[in-house]
């Protein structure tokens, strides 16, 4: 029983990181209808931004201080929001009215460009670096359960950001504009919505979430390197499709479900070697029965 609870906690912590990343995929899909493959690299850049900012912030505020950690996270999120908007402006905006496939391949190209540029020895290099400890962490023991304080931080940060995102999308003017653009580009433009600005904002928001997710992921991972975003990126992308791509609550749910299932499967002896394949197997099974994902609505094709 305690084993089960322990795995649930681990799974939720992992799943909430997936959920944060999946939100970025799903928001971009909502407004532009394509999979932004470069999202996983923005996540990696977020972790690296934090890596380089931490020593400077620590020199200012002292090591492992809570305000320092918050400052690092916010600054990285802002940097990544800028990067995300820049990618959209340079790579995706010129292709706005092209077939979806063209944009998809461009996204793969952008992703490869960021990965290979960062791996170059004069940029970041391919070696793994140790991620700094942003704030002190400790293990709590309770009824045979071990709870790492990082897991609690991850869970609470995710909940906070999900609530914030819900507020932005549902209660603000920009959020309403986002939903309008996702619903119908042309009609939104006719209503006087500046589509370019809304799309740019969506990329910024998604990339900021990815940066936070990247830092949270780096806290749990052994180290950071230019390809660190690929695996969580693929998982999050599966989570987004699992929940119904384009659907925000679906992405959060998909992330949690995937994180939990993967952790449970990893705990079963013999199955743990197949961990990388499990996420995909789950995805394929679910799509066989619900082709539009868990919460997605199937849109009949119009003639």
């Amino acid at each position: 029983m305690s084993q089960l609870l322990q795995q649930t906690i681990n799974g939720l912590a992992l799943g909430s990181i997936y959920a944060l990343i999946a939100l970025g995929y799903t928001m971009v899909y909502g407004v532009l209808r394509f999979i932004n493959f470069a999202h996983s690299d923005v996540l990696m850049l977020g972790a690296f931004a934090a890596y380089f900012l931490t020593p400077r912030v620590e020199a200012l505020l002292g090591p492992q201080s809570i305000p320092g950690a918050i400052l690092v996270v916010v600054a990285s999120a802002v940097i990544c929001a800028g990067i995300g908007m820049l990618i959209e402006l340079l790579a995706y905006r010129p292709l706005r009215n092209r077939p979806k496939l063209t944009v998809l391949i461009t996204a793969i190209g952008v992703s490869l460009l960021i990965e290979y540029t960062c791996q170059h020895r004069h940029v970041l290099g391919a070696e793994t670096r140790r991620f700094p400890t942003l704030f002190p962490s400790s293990d709590f023991h309770w009824q045979g359960l071990t709870i790492n304080s990082n897991d609690i931080v991850v869970l609470s940060v995710t909940l906070f950001l999900l609530a914030g995102l819900w507020f932005v999308v549902q209660r603000t003017k920009t959020g309403t504009a986002m939903r309008a653009v996702a619903f119908n580009h042309h009609a939104a433009a006719l209503m006087g919505i500046n589509i370019n600005r809304v799309i740019s904002f969506t990329f910024g928001l998604g990339s900021a979430l990815a940066a936070v997710a990247g830092i949270l992921y780096a806290l749990k991972a052994p180290g950071i390197e230019p390809l660190m975003g690929v695996q969580p990126g693929i998982r999050a992308f599966i989570a987004a499709v699992l929940g119904g791509i384009g659907n925000l609550p679906g992405a959060a749910l998909g992330g949690l479900v995937l994180g939990a299932l993967e952790t449970f499967a990893g705990g079963i002896p013999g199955v743990s070697n197949y961990r990388d394949g499990i996420a995909f197997a789950i995805l394929i099974l679910i799509l066989m029965f619900r082709p539009a994902g868990l919460l997605g609505k199937l849109q009949p094709e119009k003639v």
Binding site: I35, V241, N273, A281, P291
Partner: peptide, 27 residues
């Protein structure tokens, strides 16, 4: 599965099949 899925969903499922094969071969 491609009978029911199209576009991006199909791309993801084929990507998934490829990865599953790789993981199976690895074990």
């Amino acid at each position: 599965p491609s009978l029911r899925l199209r576009g991006d969903y199909l791309a993801v499922v084929t990507l998934g099949f490829g990865e599953i094969i790789r993981v199976i071969l690895q074990n």
